[in-house]
Design a binder for these strands. Structure first.
Lengths: 340, 340
DNA sequence: ACGCTAATGGAAACCGTTGTCAGATTCACC
DNA sequence: GGTGAATCTGACAACGGTTTCCATTAGCGT
């Protein structure tokens, strides 16, 4: 029976035809995939863990890009992509245990997430994206520190010294407010922590007191949240000349808020993003582009093409500063028209 | 052993502790999900079949919305979402057979797709989205005919009689060109066929000879393809006063092409879309909004909350005409300024 | 001390497939 | 007709859990 379905070459066409015909007559629906998986020890699927509000995962083009790249790699290999149900709130680690997969990709979860711990306990290969390095685990991601450094250098060169920052959530608990230094350095989202640290280093080097730089955090990752964060930031610190956002989505919101309050970008206010999504490019946002599709694809390939289970690999993706129409030198209030 | 993990109440805490401790000492990674699935006859996952270029699925916000809604429903139920690898080109039906899932959701595949046939052969419940009704299968989708009717009525009322149409792919083979009547009526993508038919009915009723209305098809579903389709359409039929697109993405492309050739929208050219994606709303595109998130969520609920396997359900979702800033009466060439 | 009941631990059956292996059958060819 | 190869058949043991069922034991009352 098994042969008729799986190895047509081992038996005569006539017999195969007869077997299949009989099977159909008996209403046999074909081999059970689960039983097959048990026997062959191959699930034919890779699990994707992203402990995020799904609204985040699907509404952020950067995240969708990663998803697409991963799905592409899976499709090439003919294996399924199993999205593990893991709400941020629910501590339902069981879903990780229940997933019949040959490996996991972990993307953008806080480093203290119990789901992540559960994945690491499973005896299957794992690749992490945009996460802090873990002993013996493959990793892929951009050099966030260097990428943010490019943005910082760009702004410093333009002359900005009074800047404000808008960032995504830093921990599992909500804090839609200004961020304390402790919360900054203790952030559980690797990407956000790294970017903030890199900004601190770069601006400190330029003589800016980082402790005086306001950082506003938003739990949800939407354009509207970016706008409200910008409002909060500019209400409290109107002297700011540049708003640095850790994602393009937030930057789009900041742009909207700038327009709302009559600030011209970039003449009155510089806004920068991060990721390089299509819409950012369309409107000419100054940002750092990272190859999100490649990120997902590379992770998938790493996981699936694991013929050589040799040393764990760490792949760093290139990033590129894209100077658009949203950054310019600050307005020189101290040096009026006769200055210079 | 099983009891120790799954039913702590059935055995003494002492024994449970001992069992778990021993398991840990032996490096036992917890129950194998596949074996468990085999025995319990529950895979804990639903399969999603969308035989499309993944670039389509992930780049069309409407499709992403469906995906998000479905993922949301799965998350609520604590089951995984298994994306079945099915490229449009590859006839790798095996992937459908190999998927260990408790049910399938089928979205936006041609009605003659072998993958779809393979899904229907599997002895698991299935819900189809935006597909032609099938005997005994749950279905969810908007009333496409009525929705398109609203657009048509809007345009007819405005006075448009010289219209052109841009639609998505109608069959599995590529045809980036004008569409013959035969291809229109024989389209294998249910949604597209229905929309074209509804347009034909509405405009015929308004006295327009549908056979004379040019329809341009694009295989890929991108803004650029929408633009190139508009170019092809307007090059051949410059007298057209309204371009009807069967998706917002294509409409965005048509807008870009209009701008490129110096046509003002809506004064010189009316453009309409379909779906009601966020970006369309942002720019004020006249379109028909359909609740894509609800579509996915409803499908998921239907599949998962199947306590009552009674009669197959068909759920029709509401649509809403959203008149934006891209539709207006046609320029009255025959009746200049003194007309009236 | 005895018998009954309830609680508990352990053994065995089962889920549906794949892989192997021995034995039976067919067929061709010498 | 005998031999060998090729092909087919049928049985059976895993895979790693869950579930049922039975035997054992403990607890309790008389």
């Amino acid at each position: 029976m098994s042969n008729a379905y799986n190895r047509p070459d081992q038996l005569s066409p006539e017999l195969r035809r007869r077997v299949l015909e009989t099977a159909r007559r008996l209403g046999y629906p074909g081999p059970d995939p689960v039983a097959r998986s048990l026997r062959t020890r191959k699930a034919g699927a890779v699990g994707l863990l992203l402990t995020e509000n799904l609204s985040y995962a699907f509404r952020d083009p950067a995240a969708v890009g990663v998803l697409e790249g991963l799905a592409l790699a899976c499709e090439d290999a003919g294996v399924g992509l199993h999205l593990v149900p893991a709400s941020p709130g629910r501590e339902d680690v069981a879903a990780v245990h229940r997933a019949g997969v040959d490996g996991f990709v972990v993307y953008s979860v806080p480093d203290d997430d119990p789901h992540l711990a559960a994945v690491l306990e499973r005896p299957v290969p794992t690749v992490i994206i945009d996460q802090p390095s873990l002993e013996g685990i493959d990793r892929v991601g951009p050099d966030d520190a260097a990428a943010v450094g490019k943005i910082a250098e760009h702004l410093v060169t333009l002359g900005h010294r009074q800047v404000g920052v808008i960032c995504m959530r830093l921990a599992r608990e909500r804090n839609d407010d200004f961020v304390s230094p402790a919360r900054q350095s203790g952030a559980h989202f690797h990407v956000q922590r790294t970017r903030l640290e890199a900004l601190a280093v770069a601006f400190s080097a330029a003589g800016v007191d980082w402790a005086g730089v306001p950082v506003v955090e938003r739990f949800d990752h939407t354009v509207d949240d970016g706008a409200s964060a910008a409002r909060q930031l500019l209400d409290a610190y109107p002297q700011i000349t540049a708003v640095i956002c850790t994602s393009d989505i937030l930057a789009l919101g900041a742009m909207a808020e700038a327009e709302r309050r009559g600030l011209r970008v970039p003449q009155d206010l510089t806004v920068t993003g991060f990721d390089g999504i299509a819409e950012a490019e369309r409107i000419g946002l100054t940002t750092v582009h990272q190859p999100v599709l490649e990120k997902g694809k590379t992770a998938g390939r790493l996981l699936l093409g694991s013929a050589e289970r040799s040393a764990p690999k760490v792949i760093t993706l290139p990033t590129e500063l894209r100077v658009g129409r949203t950054s310019a030198p600050p307005r020189t209030v101290e040096e009026p028209w006769f200055g210079g």
